[in-house]
């Protein structure tokens, strides 16, 4: 199924070529997402993709679903409104790491806290690619960015830990080097009832790679390969060994009442008991 999945019907090919640079990983993440969607056999009319602002957020324009390209950092509030208005829809948010953890950080933690049934795919390339490679909250410590030419002083977030602490009920991380695993992670996230987060680690060869002398896009993928470690393996290793590794897998898979379900329940309860008194 995975190898033969025809994802073309899900694409607005008339909008091609994409704006993404050669070697960019955004297409790999979108590809994994579309193959995941194709295995679920959902009615495309019931799928809504909401995106923020940035390179990866341009994805919504290329996808043949109901899509909404919103403002920087705010796709989650838009998506929350969509989901609350019509909980039957499959709502997916696509946003970059800057969108998710900087300007939209507040929305991210509160969507997780509410456990609203939205799947959030974070295209995490560790930089603001669209505006030219500035430092984001996911830029590694001491890594270079156009606004940190001699290295970043800050420490990045761990998106998965952040999501878990804030209350997300499905949290996973994948890499573009392993697109099949990424696809199955996204499939699980899409099926999950509650707020699900995928930290999709991807490469930006044009800015991040160039500024940090990481070589070609293939070199950047090799770097991922050399630094990846599964959650199961990492669990038995001491902290200092895994600190510069990309730990992948499912970090959280939990069941907690989903927000729109709770909302509907309250609504029904109010209808019976007449809450207005």
């Amino acid at each position: 199924m995975t190898k033969t999945a025809d994802i073309k019907p899900y694409l607005r090919l008339e909008r091609y070529p994409t704006i993404w640079c050669a070697g960019c990983g955004n297409g790999q993440v979108v590809g994994a997402f579309l193959r995941a969607i194709s295995t679920l056999d959902w009615d495309p009319k019931k799928v809504v993709v909401v995106s923020g602002i940035g390179c990866s957020s341009r994805a919504s324009g290329y996808l043949n679903f109901n899509t909404m390209h919103t403002t920087h950092g705010r796709p989650l509030p838009f998506a929350t409104g969509i989901k609350l208005a019509n909980p039957e829809l499959h709502v997916v948010v696509m946003a970059g790491d800057g969108d998710t953890t900087a300007i939209g950080g507040n929305h991210f933690i509160h969507a997780a806290r509410r456990n609203i049934g939205i799947t959030m795919i974070v295209f995490n390339n560790g930089t603001y690619g669209m505006t030219g490679g500035q430092c984001s909250p996911m830029t590694g410590h001491a890594c270079k960015a156009t606004t940190a030419p001699y290295g970043n002083l800050d420490t990045p977030f761990d998106i998965c830990k952040l999501a878990e602490a804030a209350g997300a009920t499905f949290v996973g991380r994948g890499i573009t080097y392993a697109p099949v695993k990424l696809e199955s992670l996204i499939t699980e996230a899409l099926k999950h009832k509650g707020f699900s987060v995928i930290d999709a680690v991807t490469q930006c060869p044009t800015y991040y790679g160039r500024l940090n002398k990481m070589g070609s896009p293939a070199d950047m993928l090799t770097w991922q390969k050399e630094h990846v470690i599964s959650l199961e393996k990492a669990a038995s290793l001491p902290k200092h060994v895994i600190q510069d590794k990309i730990v992948t897998g499912v970090f959280v898979k939990d069941l907690r009442p989903e927000y729109t379900t709770l909302y509907r329940r309250l609504h029904e309860q109010c209808g019976e008991d007449d809450c207005h008194d």
Partner: peptide, 25 residues
Amino acid sequence: TSIVETYAQMVADKLVDTEMINVES
């Protein structure tokens, strides 16, 4: 962006005494 990018380089190169803050919004 190019304004603050160029300026960030000037700060990094100590051409100015400015305290530059890369904020989150």
